[in-house]
Write a protein that binds this DNA or RNA. Structure first.
Length: 459
DNA sequence: TCTGGGGTCCTAGGACCC
DNA sequence: TCTGGGGTCCTAGGACCC
């Protein structure tokens, strides 16, 4: 546990709405609601003027309109928010190299990582005020609220206590007392379902939670959640601020204005979604093995179907093919209000987690950027036939027989099988093929039958 | 007046392997 | 002929967050 409140949580106030008011002076001082403004939309952000009428995030836009008919209702402009967010995050990084963004409008900052030590509470307050000024200047006038504490938990809760435009510093040593009188729902991760279960055990405040036996807690809410809640209740939070979190999945989904039953239409929509997912994967230089189709029925029940390929893909045709097959297994009776396509089990284009052996993984890593020499490839197939080269046998005069494991970016990666070290060594070769300008994957192209087969460890 | 879109993490059961 | 425990992977669903 830290001895100083050196974790900051910064939260931009009513971010989307504030950006709209910044860019459209006529909206300043007036209720603004940003979100889905169609028939089935919900509110993303309400300006403080709109909140006076009871408009809240996640409320249906229909309800918001009835509460505040004279507000301005706007679609979000994510590109603008992203640009503003980047400018704000840059100010934070100027303060400390260790910044963990949670979303476009929120981040943790670790002051200790900036070498700021021996800080008094007043020092932290002054740093926070300076940061708010810098954010206001960099963003064209936006305000932020800052919480500071000895952990993420405390900083996060603190930033919410004096919104908008506030600073709350929780002195070291006062954390448990600070939390005690609050409702359990202030703890991030305690939503309606958990709150309900806790209330059945007589727990409503953090003080109640502090009294509860850990075993009892685990019985009520499960192992992982119970253990972490038990620690959070007494402010024993040592989670580090982490700047680079890996993306775990990429997905696209859409709620329709009216439910759709037409299978051909849904297939066309799934295809388009597969292309959008693929574009975003390629832009992020990612690819993944698991394709998931999400469908929300007319009665709001939600189903997911997924299929895992033998290796990663970012190919829109492969993603679309799998999504279509999953859609074929879906009962459309009654209609569908939402369809989504996602890809998970992500990897870099040459992934090393296919290897169970760390030495082989290192070899693959090294091979990735070290082109050994040129190899003679078999004839290029049509990609629709299962990939240009992947899976085909090749022979190299020095290394013997191998098979093409992946190709792209002017290179192919070949896995050579040897008796003593399965999986065999991986080597990368330069190839002269203008079509290999972007990642293509072995398993991306396998038949449906092979998709769900998985390889357990051999020993 | 019904309930977005982008994610993360957890659980539980079954398959499969040693 | 009957009985296993441990581990990993995959699938489906649910809670939660902004």
């Amino acid at each position: 546990m830290r001895k100083e409140p050196s974790v900051l949580h910064v939260d931009l106030d009513a971010f989307f709405a504030a950006v709209e008011q910044r860019d459209k002076p006529s909206l300043r001082g007036k209720p603004v609601v940003v979100g889905g403004i169609g028939l089935r939309g919900v509110v993303s952000t309400a300006s403080y003027e709109a909140r006076k009428y009871g408009v809240r995030s996640a409320m249906s836009t229909a309800e918001a309109r009835s509460r505040c008919p004279h507000a301005a209702y706007l679609w979000p402009r994510f590109e603008v928010y992203r640009a503003t967010s980047q400018a704000v995050m840059a100010e934070m990084r100027a303060l400390s190299p260790l910044v963990e963004p949670l979303s476009l409008d929120e981040a943790f900052i670790d002051l200790a990582a900036a070498g700021l030590t021996g800080l008094t509470d007043d020092d932290v307050r002054a740093i926070s005020e300076d940061l708010k000024d810098a954010i206001r200047t960099a963003s064209g006038g936006l305000t932020a609220s800052v919480g500071a504490g000895t952990s993420k938990l405390i900083a996060k809760i603190a930033s919410d206590l004096d919104k908008p435009d506030g600073v709350v510093v929780v002195p070291a040593g006062t954390e448990a007392a600070f939390l005690a009188p609050m409702q359990v729902t202030v703890i991030p991760g305690v939503g309606p379902a958990t709150a309900q279960r806790l209330s059945m055990a007589g727990v409503r405040t953090v003080a109640d939670l502090q009294q509860l036996d850990e075993g009892e807690l685990v019985r009520q809410v499960g192992s992982a959640h119970g253990t972490s809640l038990h620690r959070m209740a007494i402010a024993a939070d040592d989670r580090p601020v982490v700047s680079d979190r890996e993306t775990k999945s990429v997905s696209v989904e859409d709620t329709f204005e009216v439910d759709i039953i037409d299978r051909a239409l849904l297939t066309a929509i799934a295809d388009r979604m597969a292309r959008r997912v693929s574009e975003r994967l390629q832009k992020a230089q990612l690819s993944g093995r698991t394709v998931t189709l999400k469908s929300r029925m007319h009665d709001f029940t939600t189903h997911t179907r997924s299929s895992t390929l033998a290796g990663p893909t970012d190919d829109p045709r492969v993603i679309a093919r799998v999504a279509r097959r999953l859609l074929d297994d879906t009962d459309l009776a009654g209609g569908i209000r939402l369809l989504g396509v996602g890809v998970s089990s992500l990897a870099d284009w040459i992934q090393d987690d296919l290897f169970t052996d760390s030495e082989a993984a290192e070899a693959a890593e090294a091979a990735q950027d070290q082109v050994v020499d040129v190899i003679e490839l078999p004839e290029r197939r049509s990609r629709d036939q299962g990939g240009y080269y992947t899976g085909q046998d090749v022979h190299h005069p020095d290394h013997g027989l191998g098979w093409v494991w992946g190709s792209g970016r002017g290179r192919v990666t070949v896995r050579f099988e040897t008796a003593e070290t399965p999986p065999g060594p991986v080597r990368t070769f330069a190839v002269d093929d203008p079509l290999l300008t972007k990642p293509v994957f072995a398993a991306a192209e396998q038949d449906a039958e092979a998709e769900t087969r998985h390889n357990g460890p051999n020993e």
